[in-house]
Amino acid sequence: MSDNNILLSVRNLSTFFDTENGTVKAVQDVCFDIKNGETFALVGESGCGKSVTALSIMRLVPKPAGAIASGEILLKSRNILKFPEKQMRRIRGNKIAMIFQEPMTSLNPVFTIGTQITEAISLHQKKYGNEAKQLAKEMLAKVRISEPGRRMNEYPHQFSGGMRQRVMIAMAISCKPSLLIADEPTTALDVTIQAQILDLLDELQQSEKMSILLITHDLGIVAQRADYVAVMYASKIVEKCSCVELFKKPLHPYTKGLLNSLPQLGAKQKRLNTIAGNVPEPLNFPSGCKFHPRCHLGCNDKRCQSQEPALKQVSENHYAACWYAEGYEK
């Protein structure tokens, strides 16, 4: 596919970690495309590999334990995995920026907010002194921080969690990246603040015309904010389709299970539906389909136990990795 509209294309990405106890296959064979201006969500539970996927795109997988084992990451059809480190540094921040879950630790506590934003701007845009400062002020205003001039001189600890996340966003978008990776950007925040931050991201996406790779475990956030979704389970994508389709017609039993297990407001449930068992450990992935021990369809099926289904197209723009999925070619 050589679609001009595709900003980032991840092809067969695998990222492995070497540990004392063996090789952890954190990400295996992950493929997805992010179009210009869309929000692409990666959903999954802890340890499913969604954050490592993000770090792989940034080429920030912690070394020396981790390494990208194979695959291609095409940014505007250029493979950034082939770039030398120096060129990659220019990509980071300028073309791809990232915000993290923990707004408490991602800012340096000994420098003022202003210093930190100005530094990011000088580094990437080669603008210095008052010009950079002015730009920093504009960025803070853009993320709706009142009195940016005064707040520039304050330290991170004087900001609340939500305000810090705003500062992180200001830093990330200061160089007008075409892709913003948001790794659980609101998990540490209260619901009301979360709504504000997500609204802000929505607004900025439209005004800056950037794509967002949204990494989250919260299906509610996905439903409200994403255009396209990939569900990850145990290092692989198990389902991929448009957001509306995912909630209307989930095909993978894991996706169905997740959706069913959410407590619903006002539903007066006596018991919640559950997915049995625990999230598998990366060193002890089950054989065959990794979900089969927890699956009500596959737990007794020989094929599910021995053969792992690949991610295949089952209908237009809907991909699933399940032997039982409707339309799955065996």
């Binding site: 939500g162 609204d199 409200q224 904010r225």
Partner: peptide, 19 residues
């Protein structure tokens, strides 16, 4: 403010003024 798992893009009624 709770994001409901129903796919419809909508702005929540949270005012930024109340920060």
């Amino acid at each position: 403010a709770i994001p409901k798992p129903v796919p419809e893009r909508k702005k929540t009624a949270v005012s930024a003024a109340g920060l």
